[in-house]
């Protein structure tokens, strides 16, 4: 038995070494415009691609301390404009990334909380992401954020070899300097605003007609939401949960909307945090305040951010501005 255990340990070690070596080879061999590693893992994300994660993460490394940190998915980086918060004297940073689910937010927070030291964390709750596994966001982060142990921890938490392979790719991207040399691609009608916000100058003109669907909230994602709250509290900061307004047609298609809203409200109560769901509450119009069926345009963002600041002020949840109203630099 001891011999078998020793053999297993040796074979295991050999697996790790071979995994690294073969991964290195696959990282360098390209088929068309993809590396074999991306092809095998089905990772469609490009460094500096859609979502502006590359400049956002670069800024997060050096932005310094903030009053408010925003976390979440594209609903976050397209819905919270640090310039508006700066008008009220708050220095903030938007750390939303594409498809960011709670499991991703948790590790992003662990990585950047010590650098940004926010006094208030605003976490966007987008219910659709709670029935996902978090891999999409991990792919995005692995292509745009430098290698860190939080990245490895997130890969292990996702429990899929795809994530491990993406973490390996992230390690090679960082070590070879490719990530450092990468440039953000431009996108039509979209502007990256320093502080993490992405401004989209479009007005949605179509009529959304989504099929009715039921969303099953994954227990492990709810569990990570609890962990995020605990993490922030343990560091003496506050956290608030919010949901950005969406077009009514989209909301009506979610057949279990009330059930989901009740689950989040119950979770917030359980953890002693406030949850503000702005759906059905703000006078948003599909063809005025949205850039597509999911995201607000600058007019919608202003309406939403102003309402959010009012609400937070009313409930005494906002910290005292660091810079004072007049001299705030977002």
């Amino acid at each position: 038995m001891i011999k078998l255990a020793r053999q297993t340990a040796v074979y295991g070690l050999l697996v790790v070494v071979l995994y690294g070596l073969v991964g290195w080879m696959f990282f360098h061999i390209r088929v068309g415009d993809q590396s074999v590693l991306d092809l095998a893992t089905r990772n469609p994300v490009e460094t500096g691609g859609f979502g502006f994660t590359l400049p956002r993460i670069r800024e997060a490394e050096t932005w310094g301390e903030v009053d408010i940190l925003f976390l979440g998915s594209s609903h976050t980086y397209r819905s919270f404009d640090p310039r508006i918060f700066a008008e009220y004297g708050y220095r903030s940073f938007n750390l939303g990334t594409t498809g960011q689910t709670p499991i991703n937010s948790y590790y992003v927070l662990k990585r950047y909380f010590p650098k940004l030291r926010p006094r208030l964390v605003i976490l966007d709750i987008y219910r659709n992401l709670y029935d996902r596994d978090g891999l999409e966001s991990f792919y995005d982060l692995s292509k745009n954020a430098p290698f860190s142990w939080e990245m490895v921890a997130m890969a292990l938490a996702l429990r899929t070899p795809h994530a491990l392979n993406a973490a390996l790719d992230n390690f090679f991207l960082t070590q070879t300097g490719r990530l450092e040399r990468a440039q953000q691609q431009p996108f039509e009608d979209e502007v990256y605003v320093p502080g993490g916000y992405v401004e989209t100058h479009k007005v949605y003109t179509k009529s959304p007609n989504p099929k009715p669907r039921r969303i099953e909230l994954q227990e492990f994602q709810l569990d990570y939401l609890r962990r995020i709250i605990d993490y922030v509290y343990a560091r003496g900061s506050r956290i608030v949960l919010v949901s950005q307004p969406e077009p009514l047609e989209i909301l009506r298609a979610v057949v279990n909307y009330d059930e989901i809203a009740a689950t989040f409200a119950a979770l917030a109560e359980e953890k002693g945090v406030r949850y503000f769901d702005f759906n059905f509450k703000l006078p948003v119009q599909t063809h005025v305040h949205f850039s597509d069926a999911d995201h607000l345009n600058p007019a919608g963002v202003r309406l939403y951010n102003t309402a959010l600041i009012d609400t937070l002020q009313k409930h005494h949840l906002l910290p005292t501005p660091t810079n004072g109203k007049s001299s705030a630099s977002y």
């Binding site: 071979l18 073969v22 696959f26 899929t160 070899p161």
Partner: peptide, 9 residues
């Protein structure tokens, strides 16, 4: 290694 790298999960 084929399973780890080329598997679809």
């Amino acid at each position: 290694l084929c399973i780890v790298f080329f598997g679809v999960y």
